[in-house]
Amino acid sequence: MYAFELHHAKSVADAAALLAKTGGKALAGGQSLVAAMKLRLAQPGHVVDLSGVAELKGIRREGDHVTIGAMTRHAEVASSDVVKGAIPALAALAEGIGDRQVRNMGTLGGALANNDPAADWPAGVLGLGATVVTNKRKIAADDFFKGMYETALGADEIIVSVSFPVPKKAAYAKFPNPASRFALVGVLVAQTGSGVRVAVTGAASAVFRCKPIEDALAKSWTAAAAKAVKVSATDLNSDLHGSPAYRAHLVSVMAARAVDAAR
């Protein structure tokens, strides 16, 4: 790891000012950033610790939305009665991230800002049509995820919270990579106020919505309808764990499983 200077932000404004001044990186749970710094894949000269910023924490129900603070840990989402009551799909998604130790440190904001192509949270946020609230603006999920490890966030922009509209029904089904537990393919299906949404992670360079399955499920909300869709393998990931065709097949299979599990 290269040397860096560590700063402790006391508020969102303070964190944004420190990031703007130093050109550094925010530190949330460190589960991706510290690992990347150890490998020297990330080499920030300044690191701004967000753990002391109270405004970034907490889970609350606000009418037909559930708002989760960026620094909320995966384990806290998984065990939250508010989340389990309103959007059980999200609690289950959070419970399936990595392992216990990772869930005890990793945060929602860190996972979204990182936008790993195989991460679970991006599917939850895109699939439910959530809104990412930053210190500068509100970003619709459809505009947030830009590509592999790429988001709409500016350099000194901080995710404050994410606001999830409560869906009529939703579920997330993931086929985990047996070693890392990241998604080989993960699919979130939801019946939302604005129609059926299907978000896929792990299959391509970044999370995406699968229009053919959305259309099929809008016509018939059944596992069979999802499974019958032949997803195109073009531009899907290829690695030692699976070919593009295998991943394309898994997208329909996981979508079908999610429809069965949706409540």
Binding site: G29, G30, Q31, R100, Q101, N104, S180
Partner: peptide
């Protein structure tokens, strides 16, 4: 961050001590 041999409790929660800064 894979094997868990470095697991300690941080305020009672199991974490992997190789994957966080001492400052955390």
């Amino acid at each position: 961050g894979q094997c868990g041999a470095c697991t300690v409790l941080l305020d009672g929660r199991a974490v992997k001590a190789c994957n966080l800064l001492a400052a955390q």
